[in-house]
C-alpha cells in the first residue's frame, strides 16, 4: 500500500508545471524515504531529478518500494481539477496498474477522486557523480527567469561567466549583443533577494537558452535558485521546495565543434 498526502494541491501543481514541458512521462519511485523521479528530456540534453522527502508530507506510507510510471500530461489534466487549497492524496495498492489521486476541500464537503492508468516505462537511471563545483551562485529565482527570458531574444545560447566579481550572462546574435552582470550583494535585509557567489576558480560555460527557460518553469516553487558550475560538466540548476525536497535540472554544456 502506498499513500502520500499533501496539505495543498498547489505544490503538486507547481511541481508538475516545472517538469511537464521537458518530460512527457516519468517514473515516480516511491520508498519509505519519499518519492524520487529522474528522467532525461527527449533529446537527452538535460536531466530532471525530483526529490520529495517523506517527512515533508502530511501523511506518508509506503509498505513496499513502488515505481509508478505516469503520463505527465494526464496527471496535469487531473491536477487541473483540484483547487489550490485542496488536500491531495496519492494512493496505490502494491503491484497495482492504476493510481488514485484524491482531492478534498478544506471543509471536507467536496471529495473527488481520479484514477489513472500507470505505465511501464523503460527509463534508464543515470548515476550522477559527486562533483566539486568551481562556482556556486545563489540568486533570486525571478531574476534568473527574467535573465533567461531576456537573453533568449538575442541568441539560442547564453554564456555564463562567473568570477569573484560576479556572474555575467551574455548572448549575441543578429540583433546585437546583450550582457547582464550581477554583482554579489553586500548587506541584504532579505535573504531571498541576495546574490551569493562561492567561487573556487572562475568558469565560463555556454548553454542552450531553450532548456534554461524550461527550467525556470520551477520559479513558483522557490524564491531562490542555485546554479552550480564547473568546466566541461553539466550545469546544475536547483530549486528547493520548502520543507519537502528539491528539483534539480542538469544541462549538458555546448562545446567547441
Amino acid at each position: 500500500m502506498f499513500e502520500a498526502r499533501l496539505g495543498q494541491a498547489t505544490i503538486l501543481k507547481k511541481i508538475l508545471d516545472a517538469i511537464k514541458d521537458l518530460l512527457n512521462e516519468g517514473t515516480f519511485d516511491c520508498s519509505d524515504s519519499g518519492i524520487q523521479l529522474q528522467a532525461m528530456d527527449n533529446s537527452h540534453v538535460s536531466l530532471v531529478s525530483l526529490t520529495l522527502r517523506s517527512d515533508g508530507f502530511d501523511k506518508f506510507r509506503c509498505d513496499r518500494n513502488l515505481s509508478m510510471g505516469m503520463n505527465l500530461g494526464s496527471m496535469a489534466k487531473i491536477l487541473k481539477c483540484a483547487n489550490n487549497e485542496d488536500n491531495v492524496t496519492i494512493k496505490a495498492q502494491d503491484n497495482a496498474d492504476t493510481v488514485t489521486i484524491m482531492f478534498e476541500s478544506a471543509n471536507q464537503e467536496k471529495v473527488s477522486d481520479y484514477g489513472m492508468k500507470l505505465m511501464n516505462l523503460d527509463q534508464e537511471h543515470l548515476g550522477i557523480p559527486e562533483t566539486d563545483y568551481s562556482c556556486v551562485v545563489r540568486m533570486p529565482a525571478m531574476e534568473f527567469a527574467r535573465i533567461c527570458r531576456d537573453l533568449a531574444q538575442f541568441s539560442e545560447s547564453v554564456v555564463i561567466c562567473c568570477t569573484k566579481e560576479g556572474v555575467k550572462f551574455s548572448a549575441s546574435g543578429d540583433v546585437g549583443t546583450a550582457n547582464i552582470k550581477l554583482a554579489q550583494t553586500g548587506n541584504v535585509d532579505k535573504e531571498e533577494e541576495a546574490v551569493i557567489i562561492e567561487m573556487q576558480e572562475p568558469v565560463t560555460l555556454t548553454f542552450a537558452c531553450r532548456y534554461l527557460n524550461a527550467f525556470t518553469k520551477a520559479t513558483p516553487l522557490s524564491t531562490q535558485v542555485q546554479l552550480s558550475m564547473c568546466a566541461d560538466v553539466p550545469l546544475v540548476v536547483e530549486y528547493r521546495i520548502n520543507e519537502l525536497g528539491h528539483i534539480r535540472y542538469y544541462l549538458a554544456p555546448k562545446i567547441e565543434d
Binding site: H44, L126, K254, I255
Partner: peptide
C-alpha cells in the same frame, strides 16, 4: 560554432 553535447556523455547508466 558550438555544438550541443548530450547529458549521456557525462553521466553513466546505473
Amino acid at each position: 560554432k558550438k555544438l550541443q553535447s548530450s547529458i549521456r556523455n557525462y553521466f553513466t547508466a546505473k
